[in-house]
Amino acid sequence: MNQTLRYIGKKLLWTIPILLGITLLAFALGLIARGDPAVNRASADPDYIPTEEEIQALREELGLDDPVLIQYGRWLGGVLRGDLGRSLIDDKPVLDELLRLLPNTLLLSVLALAVIAAAGLLGGICLSLFRDSFLDVAGRVVLVFLMSVPGFCMAYFMIWLFAQKLRVLPTSGADGPENFIMPCLAVAIGSACVVIRLLRSSILGEMGKNYVLTAQAKGLRRGQIILRHVLRNALTPSVTYAANAFGGLLGGSMITESVFSIPGIGSYALTAISKRDYTAIQGYVLFTGFAFVLVCLLADLICAWLNPKIRLGG
């Protein structure tokens, strides 16, 4: 237990330089990218062209003329006090906005992860159980097909089928749980297919190992062997993949959010980037960076639990 805590502590300490690095990088990218948040703020109304003086006044107000390192330092100081700053465009506190949008993104990601895990486990086990049977071959063809369909095509297809033709689900919005079914499937299907394939091949890989022979000789049936012996050893690559996918989802899925009109972190970041809203981008990068590190840590812990050799440092 102590060992685990120390491990977690070490990992968390490591996130600090990582987060510093990526936020600094995000700040630096702002230097390279063209576009000025002051201009964007002043010209929110497309029919209005701001004057040079207005823009300059805004730049001064927003502190955009200070050297980049000072701007970064100011931002970092705020972060240490728990203040992510205010949007350069609409002046809303970044933290409040992220927290407002987080529940949608979180709900979508967690549901998607559940779909990925459930479909991945079930599919992976089924396909490996009936290896080379019709189900396996047909299933793999379907998987390749589903994997190659871009998420937004899947989204449009589902809208057409479930909302327009069958009218069982609402097209878009984030009003109730039923609104999240299609978006969740749209973001999950691709990853779920990958997990099914990964799991199938790692189960089959494990099936060739000697311990499986021992298990067979005990009189265990194929299904029992997969569930009790093989699965645990075969899960690691799938867990790592699913964790990566989940980490990505926590950063918001911009396309799915926009197709289904779900206000989430992804669309927030998209707007922030297009408007060069550096504080918002920084907040987003910090948040997603932290979420990603946490998810990876969780995945590490799961893998260690699955694999005693890692856990016991053997």
Binding site: V115, A118, A119, L122, G123, C126, L129, F130, L135, A138, G139, F162, R167, V168, L169, P170, G176, P177, E178, I181, C184, L185
Partner: peptide, 21 residues
């Protein structure tokens, strides 16, 4: 049977919808 189960499990994610809509 396994195929049916797989389909059902995928469909189950969409399960609660018809009841609520």
């Amino acid at each position: 049977l396994a195929g049916v189960a797989l389909t059902l499990s995928l469909a189950a994610c969409g399960g609660p919808a018809p009841a609520q809509t």
